[in-house]
Design a protein around this nucleic acid. Sequence first.
DNA 1: TTGACATGTAACCTTTTAGTTACATATAAT
DNA 2: ATTATATGTAACTAAAAGGTTACATGTCAA
Lengths: 112, 112
Amino acid sequence: MDAVFKALADESRRSILDHLYTQGGKTLGELCEPFAQIMSRQAVMKHLRILEDAHLITTVWSGREKKHYLNPVPIHAIETRWIRKFEKQRIDALSALKSALEGTDTKGKKNA
Amino acid sequence: MDAVFKALADESRRSILDHLYTQGGKTLGELCEPFAQIMSRQAVMKHLRILEDAHLITTVWSGREKKHYLNPVPIHAIETRWIRKFEKQRIDALSALKSALEGTDTKGKKNA
DNA sequence: TTGACATGTAACCTTTTAGTTACATATAAT
DNA sequence: ATTATATGTAACTAAAAGGTTACATGTCAA
């Protein structure tokens, strides 16, 4: 579990997960695009390695291309560690209320 | 949000959250006890500061004592970032099945 | 088979982080 | 008032993390 939290600690890696959440099956090359002029391909690859080791992403080889997919299971495990079932509903209601007051739609909400 | 992930990246801090999850309202001194002979009071205080800055804990002063409480809201936000509603049920069912097969009780489950 | 493309590995550098020790402040008790 | 208790701050050190460049391997296409 330590690997999961360590992996999520970096903004670039969270951004990668965001991209895979939007659309799965992306290759290293495709995942590099948003980071062009920010960091090298090798740097992105290091991040992918860390995410994969933490089982936050799953990969499938297709010829010389490696496709990446988000795995939500370890993320879900984070919540179940510190939040009791009865609390979930209260918090969900709370954030829904907050969104409503802010005039934002929960479904289309952009995350920080 | 970055502060939250950074805060959760450290095992000692997660352990502190575990203690506050079990029982809230603990003082710095009390939170130090499990770490005696592992790290200094000042080190624990640094961790508490980081957790507080990330709003993962809330504090209340009572005389010269500072009481600490777990705040589950930012933890819940992690899940909503990368997990769609319809997926939650599937994952919950999956981990319940896994627990059943392992012969462990979900309610009394110890986390890694 | 040769060259281009896609991914992988290694050595190195810089910044961040987790911990320490020493000193400081504030509240409670005698 | 004085002392003990509880928490806070600062300077420093060692290790970990994120990034770079250079080199290596494997697959596709002409």
